[in-house]
Amino acid sequence: MKPFIEKHIVQLLAARDERAISLLYDHYADALYGVAIKVTKDEDLAKDVLQNAFVKIWKKADNYDPSKARLFTWLFRVVQNTAIDAVRSRQRKQSKEVQTNDSNVYHIPTTQLAIDHIDLKNHTDGLEEKYKVVIDALFFQGMTQQEASDELNIPLGTVKSRLKIGLRELRKLFGVVIVFLTL
């Protein structure tokens, strides 16, 4: 949480001061780049996504209402939407290429692309996989609970309960990290 810096950035954004973008980048770019990579599973595409998202953030700064959402929530939405659009656009392009090339050529679906070389600094290791899967589907893949239920083949009620428990566990984990850091 960065209440002071967040307030300052919001003021600069409202005043159309370019320093806002520099500060946004310094404080949020790593987290937003992580979001872009989680969604696209592609470093180069994620880089383009982040760049396009920052341009959108600057152009649409007037749309941000601090009384409706925290600054990070708004930034997250812009990056997530840009990333989902980029993935869909790439899938459409690949689909066209498949149609125009020999049908015998085997194409790996985008969602299966491995990113093993990316060294994720995952603080959520303490969270059980079944909770992470649900939270990832909702936070990073932009699915609704119903879509997550269909996609993960888990009953809707289970998705709801795993989300609630997962988020509660998450708070505990972060609480521990915060306490540990302050000691």
């Binding site: 790593d30 987290a31 780049y33 990579i37 990070f72 929530t73 600094k121 959520t124 936070f139």
Partner: peptide
Amino acid sequence: LEEYASSYAIPV
């Protein structure tokens, strides 16, 4: 959301 997303932060 912020905490969870930040846990996946990667240097740009």
